[in-house]
């Protein structure tokens, strides 16, 4: 059972940041998807719901997704649907159901650094960056490596390029967490290959990316890139699958995502 002693609705980001830094044990509320799991006592909760962080906006060279944008909005908003072939939208579409996706936020998924996250894998493939208030911009990749914390995530920034991207995953049942997920992208001759839920966090596979840059994307190179990904990455066991199984399906997911990109190119 969740107990919250005090909830603060900061009027602006500065106040929010001062609160989170000033009150030990204070918790920033995202979509609250995991908040009710287990028994938790929070002395001070900081709610960002009234700061207007629920917008998706386009600038000259980026699409910016507010931290409080829900996964459902990522799935349906014209800007995110149109971004990189809708890879973000596709990455969230099997997360439980529309009602949950209308509650939980992209900022919550990202800030929590959940290793099983589908949208994190997709965001990694489009070079997403994160804007933290009072601190500035950090790449999603750096953030996942554990840099920075206890700050206020404002938005997720995706640079606009000629992205062609795809997302693939294997699940034991359609709305389950992924046994393994994969996102790839191509912009010009630049490639991203990302594999997540290994079951540890999503990683870019530079060996595969470099191989593709050098050899171009073909049916054959897609297969080889998949093999490289499986060779480069570590896979572990969890109740959804063994490391051995993950290693075996990794090349398939990478290959299939790349072939999708090839088809779309």
């Amino acid at each position: 059972m969740l107990e919250i002693e005090n909830i603060i609705f900061p009027a602006n980001l500065g106040e929010a940041l001062a609160t989170v830094r000033g009150i030990p044990g204070s918790v920033v509320l995202g979509g609250c998807g995991y908040l009710r799991l287990g028994s938790r006592k929070i002395r001070t909760a900081i709610d960002l719901a009234r700061l207007g962080l629920d917008k998706i906006v386009e600038t000259a060279d980026t699409v910016e997704i507010g931290a409080m944008v829900t996964l459902r909005d990522v799935e349906t908003d014209a800007l995110t649907v149109g971004l990189a072939g809708g890879v973000l939208a596709k990455s969230v579409e099997n997360i439980v159901g529309v009602q949950l996706r209308k509650c939980v936020t992209l900022g919550g998924s990202v800030a929590g650094r959940y290793p099983f996250s589908d949208p994190i894998t997709a965001l990694m493939a489009v070079d997403a960056e994160l804007l933290f208030h009072g601190r500035g911009v950090i790449s999603l990749q750096d953030y996942l490596e554990g840099k920075w914390g206890r700050d206020i995530l404002v938005k997720i920034i995706v640079p606009k390029r000629q992205w062609i991207a795809a997302f693939t995953s294997v699940r034991k049942s359609v709305t389950d967490y992924a046994v393994l997920n994969c996102a790839v992208s191509k912009s010009g001759q630049d490639y991203r290959v990302v594999v997540g839920s290994r079951p540890s966090r999503a990683l870019r596979v530079t060996t595969a990316e470099n191989f593709l840059r050098e050899n171009g994307l073909t049916k054959k190179s897609a297969v080889r890139a998949g093999e490289l990904a499986a060779e480069s990455l570590q896979f572990g066991d969890n109740p959804r699958g063994s490391g051995e199984y993950r290693k075996k399906i990794c090349p398939v997911l990478v290959k299939r995502a790349l072939l999708e990109v090839l088809d779309a190119a």
């Binding site: 799991l37 099997n94 034991k172 049942s173 359609v174 709305t175 389950d176 967490y177 109740p239």
Partner: peptide, 14 residues
Amino acid sequence: TNSFMEYKIPSRLD
């Protein structure tokens, strides 16, 4: 397998 997150029953998509 103590929740519907860990014990999956078929959804309509399955």
